[in-house]
Design a protein around this nucleic acid. Sequence first.
DNA 1: AGCACGATTAACT
DNA 2: GTTAATCGTGCTC
Length: 196
Amino acid sequence: MLSTEFQPLQNDFYQQPTLNTARQLLGARLFRILDGELVSGRITETEAYIGEDDRACHAKAGLTERTKIMYGRAGTAYVYFTYGMHWMLNVVTEAEGFPAAVLIRSVAIETGIECIKARRPGVKPSEWTNGPAKLTKALGIDGSFNGIDLTGKGNGLWIEPGIVISDANVTIGARVGLYSVPEPWKSFPWRFLVTG
DNA sequence: AGCACGATTAACT
DNA sequence: GTTAATCGTGCTC
């Protein structure tokens, strides 16, 4: 059933500095209506990508057909394809005109377990959504979600407030998978992970 | 028109 | 620890 306790996180939440949004998304709940069922999970890992100067951010290429979403309204989904096979889910942050986003890297499924089990046969529950491409596959998120509004429930994908994660349970470190990104961007502590 | 590369994953040795 | 899979994007010719 649909949650009535909370409403989706709104534009003002995503307009904060990207690092704040990335940190505060830990513990928030990602919702998806999939095959008519409500599936949700707690966000347990995020990364921030901030501005044209960030050599790890796609917006380093400037305003292009691909990156224009990141220049748009905070709270919009930026979904892109990489490695020839994987979709990644991001939320656009900060003011319109400034390109930044938070990559959702991992969630812990809480509801809709049977639905996910059917979609990921033979995969261990702990491996269902513990990676950015795994979670998009498990939740049926692809390029058709690029540019949708995540601040309402109309598109079957949104984020609600969840539990507050204390600093004692958060590990902050360098972003993952940045092989050819130069320093200092490669080592910026812009990854937020729930531990303990 | 062609090319190098990638915010990853699974399946190897 | 290493590597293949696989194709959209952005850059160069």
